[in-house]
């Protein structure tokens, strides 16, 4: 019974405190964070619909909040979170069908997800400015 003679509990070697961030783990945690963030934005969607259902006054009040500086910044974050989770989610669905598991493919698809999400965020905001500017 060596355990009984041990003076103290064995220490646990460090894990997240020292493990090198890699594209694999960084994109995984990013997918999780964006998923949680989108769940919060889903609450905003429900508030928006409820405001619209309760009448024009509440709706325009909410539009003002969304149109404010902090509102717009949150909206920009939501846009990027949306595209990152969408592209990252599709990447996961591909893996679930036992495809693209070579390291080269894991890294190429990872960077593609990052670049595509950034590009789609920029494109959708430019489109939005273009359309909003014309209406």
């Amino acid at each position: 019974m060596e355990r009984m003679t041990t003076k103290r509990a064995r220490p646990l070697s460090p894990n997240i405190q020292i493990y090198r961030p890699q594209l694999t783990s960084v994109l995984s945690i990013a997918n999780r964070i964006t998923g949680v963030a989108l769940s919060v934005f889903a609450v905003v969607l429900v508030i928006w619909l409820a405001a619209a259902a309760s009448g024009p006054a509440a709706y325009s009040q909410l539009q003002t909040i969304i149109g404010s500086w902090p509102g717009q910044i949150l909206f920009l974050i939501a846009t990027f979170a949306f595209f990152l989770h969408l592209c990252g989610g599709i990447r996961h669905l591909v893996w679930d069908s036992v495809r693209a598991f070579e390291l080269k493919q894991i890294y190429a698809s990872g960077w593609a997800v990052v670049l595509l999400s950034a590009a789609l965020t920029v494109i959708s905001w430019l489109l939005n400015l273009l359309i909003a500017g014309h209406s």
């Binding site: 619209a52 024009p56 709706y59 325009s60 969304i66 846009t79 949306f82 969408l86 989610g89 599709i90 996961h92 669905l93 679930d96 959708s124 489109l127 939005n128 359309i131 909003a132 209406s135």
Partner: peptide, 29 residues
Amino acid sequence: RITAAALVLPAIWFAASLIAHSGSDYDTF
């Protein structure tokens, strides 16, 4: 996985609608 796959189309529709209608007034919306 199934709900993820099922979300793709409605989510893209929703994003596209936001882009097109974000400045709309109450009646248009």
